Amino acid sequence: MDSDDSLSDIDDLSAMFHFTEDPISSIERRFIKAKMKFTKNGTLKENGTGELRKGPSRNGPRKSTFPSLPFFMDWAWPDLGKITEQKMSNYLHNIDVPVKKATFGMACFWAPDALFGTTVGVVRTRVGYTGGKKKNPTYRDLGDHTEAIDIDYDPCVISYKNLLDLFWQNHDPISKHKLQYSSFIYYHDEEQKELAEKTLKEQQKKYNEPVQTNIVPLSTFYEAEDYHQKYRLQQHPWLCEAIGVRQCGTKLIKSHIAARLNGYVIGIGGVKQFNEEAEKLGLEDKVRDYVYKLVKENEGRGLIC
């Protein structure tokens, strides 16, 4: 960056968006500055070949759309991937342990994705659609399916009974909803079925109205669209970029750290748990500080959807 450039406006924006002084934020600062210049006098433009072109505009400010941050990053710092490769490798994306599965319908699937993602013993989560006969459902064309959360968990750390307890404690099983948001326990084997039926009987004793939860075998589980996966985490694009899951559908779904942070950013799990496992997750200081502020700010607010 030129020495005579004023960075006061950039610094203000950097503070607003929590940018930090690392290679990625350096590009973000250059991006903001370039966009500010473009807005004022059209000095930068993306041409038809996908490149940025410098030069004065003959007819005043250009009206073309300024390129996106990912495009600008490739242009401004083509070696970024090499610079951050080592940093990315430290993040705990994969946990190689034998897992079992649990699948629940608990109304909107964004909330349970955050809840179970930060539950100790859960390895990874994904949200999707199941229970119906329609093939390849989508959010806009769901058919006879229900929104559901699919969980991979380590049975040496957490039991299926523990997961059932969280299921019952974190949604209203007596409310009647349309099929999309109905309460379901989708069992994977006879042992899960027996436990689910036992806990349903226990829950029914707590209510004067019938429990609406259905217990059925799991059928085909269809993954929801990428924008639904780790929804709360994706509201922090800088954080997704920092841990290497931005615009990475499969990696975002399978990543252990993504599941964890998806809950932490809205306070689920709490400060104590976050501090205890931040180092294990491989969080570098700036990412850790960023997430810590969010956990502290949002702890106790409960699940949101």
Rank of each mutant, 00 (worst) to 15 (best):
P23D: 03
T20S: 12
N162C: 08
K251H: 09
A76E: 10
K280W: 11
I253Q: 00
L283S: 00
F17P: 02
D5L: 09
T39C: 13
P155L: 08
N90A: 05
Q180D: 07
N94A: 08
V120R: 09
K272R: 12
A224N: 00
E28K: 02
D96N: 12
D289V: 04
F71H: 14
Q235C: 06
N162V: 04
H145G: 10
G269W: 12
F19W: 15
K63R: 13
R30H: 10
R140L: 08
G42E: 06
I304R: 12
P78Y: 13
Y181G: 05
G263T: 01
Q234K: 04
K296L: 06
G244F: 00
L166R: 07
D152V: 08
A107D: 10
I83V: 15
G131L: 06
I10S: 10
W168N: 03
V265C: 15
E297F: 11
L52N: 03
A196E: 03
K101R: 09
D12Y: 11
M1A: 11
K45P: 01
H93V: 02
M73T: 15
D289G: 08
H228R: 12
L7G: 11
Y227L: 02
E147D: 10
A76D: 14
R58P: 09
K100R: 13
V265M: 09
L92S: 07
E85P: 01
N298W: 09
Y153F: 15
D172Y: 04
H18P: 02
E190M: 11
G302Q: 11
S183M: 07
G42C: 04
V97N: 00
C305V: 06
R126C: 05
D96E: 08
I27Y: 03
Y292R: 11
F38V: 04
Q229R: 05
G48N: 14
S219Q: 14
T84I: 15
I149Q: 09
W77R: 13
D2N: 14
P237F: 03
L7D: 10
K272F: 14
K37T: 11
H256V: 08
N94V: 15
C156N: 13
F38L: 05
S255H: 02
Y153G: 01
F104N: 04
E51C: 08
Q247P: 04
K251D: 03
I185D: 01
P155S: 12
E225A: 00
V265W: 05
T125G: 06
D5N: 11
G81Q: 13
W110E: 02
M16T: 12
D5H: 02
S64T: 14
I185N: 05
L283I: 01
I253K: 09
D12R: 09
V291H: 01
Y181C: 03
D79F: 00
N275S: 10
